[in-house]
Simulated scan of single mutants.
Amino acid sequence: MHIQLKNRRAIVTGSTAGIGLAIATGLAGTGAHVVVTGRSQARVDEALAAIARQVPGASLSGVAGDLGSKAGADHLIEQVPDADILINNLGIFEPKPFFDIPDEDWQRFFDINVMSGVRLSRHYAQGMAKRGWGRIQFISSESGVQIPAEMVQYGMTKTAQLAVSRGLAETLAGTGVTVNCVLPGPTRSEGVGDFFGKIAAEQGVSQETVERDFIATHRPSSLIKRLATVEEVANLSVYLASEQASATTGAAVRVDGGVVRSIV
């Protein structure tokens, strides 16, 4: 299968590192023009350079701003009025006991993880529908299906993304625009790597040991018995953005290493 997305414009939110950067790199490799987004211009420039090194001749641009706010979303829309592919990847996570999570954290997680995708999808989906083609994805998580006790506020937002994605797919029925959720499991992204690295330093053990213990203790149902790579997650996202994935919509597609114990 050869995925070719030349002449398509793709926006990947939160794409200066981790899964977002891997998705942006993968889409650039298909010939799409990729818009990288991040909070600071310096981070955006670093990501653009990293993609260009991996994909010589890639068609790229970047927009800096806080997409967790309406002002940030409006700025991106002003800079990039239309897109054929929208990957709502922006998200934050933070392990914290339920009784220690203040109101402000619940609102912050919802604004960044959910409303960023709602605002952008509301704008870009309308143009996609008029043109008769488009791809929208929400990068959710297996935590939206199996809410983790150590970060309920995060799991809540990932479940919300599932609801928004399915509802938008229903709204766009018959338009040629597909809307799907991608559900990664534990993945060795930059943020997760930093988190495990800090624990390893505190405990005086290797990061590999911390990762292995995390899977054994917190995700024992994993069938691959390891963290996924960001490239493994990105491969699924790139496929769902392709012409070949035209019959897949309204779906929650897992790339969780088998963590969710379900056959559907």
Rank of each mutant, 00 (worst) to 15 (best):
G65H: 01
E46G: 13
G72C: 12
V177N: 06
Q153W: 06
F99P: 02
V260K: 00
L48T: 05
P186R: 02
D82R: 10
G155E: 08
G132C: 14
L21F: 11
A245I: 05
L227G: 05
Q207R: 11
S59P: 02
Q41E: 11
I263Y: 14
K96R: 07
V255N: 06
L86W: 04
S222L: 04
T217L: 07
A50E: 10
K158L: 07
A251H: 12
I19N: 03
A201W: 04
A129S: 04
G132Y: 08
A58V: 09
T13F: 01
R9N: 11
Q203F: 13
T209N: 10
F98H: 14
N113K: 01
I51N: 01
A42Y: 08
P56N: 07
S15K: 05
E94Q: 10
I139M: 03
Q161P: 04
R166E: 12
F196W: 14
S222I: 13
I85E: 00
S40F: 01
T171V: 08
A52M: 03
Q41A: 13
I87H: 00
V145Y: 04
Y154R: 07
R39K: 12
V233K: 04
E142L: 13
G91M: 05
Q153Y: 01
L86M: 13
V230F: 01
T13A: 13
S165M: 12
Q4K: 11
G258H: 01
S140V: 08
A251Y: 04
S262T: 11
A245H: 04
R226D: 14
A216T: 15
Q4P: 04
A42N: 07
L5N: 13
G204A: 14
N113P: 04
A17G: 05
N113S: 02
P186K: 01
V182C: 05
H218V: 11
P56H: 06
G204T: 02
E46H: 09
I224Y: 11
A247R: 10
M151G: 09
D45T: 10
I11F: 05
H33S: 12
V179L: 03
Q137T: 05
